[in-house]
Amino acid sequence: MTVQRFEDVEFGAELPAFAPDTSLANVRRFARAAEMMAGRFIDHEQARKEGLPGALVPGVMSQGILAAMIHRWAPGAEIVKIDTVFRAPVLVDAPHTVSGVVTDLDAESRSAEIDLTITNAAGETRVLGTARVRLP
């Protein structure tokens, strides 16, 4: 369910979760756009040579995915601040779930605070953070 205005938002509302495209092809697409063509992002073998379990989704991409979730929920939302902690690798070609929940509402500034998480298939939090968004 999308929201259009601040008045549509409820405390505790869960943003529609979605499964981001963490395929190697899409991560490569992102890496080209962001000029982040390091081996650890675009090649599983290169990543393993660096001691990683496989290619990683860049942190910047994880954050971009979380922002995209916010806009899917509230197309008119203006992100005032988005702060993400990368607690563990988000692996390429592994399924993940992106979720958010409204934890604060400020009527004066017409803004909402949202908890953000990216979890893997085992339910382990890989990325967590918060965003403050202003709504029409």
Binding site: F18, P20, D21, N26, V27, R29, F30, R32, A33, A34, E35, M61, G64, I65, A67, A68, M69, H71, R72, P75
Partner: peptide, 14 residues
């Protein structure tokens, strides 16, 4: 182009 590709790869819809 970079803006559009970045947005698309992240799943932006707006």
């Amino acid at each position: 182009d970079a803006m559009l590709e970045f947005a698309a790869a992240c799943g932006e819809s707006a």
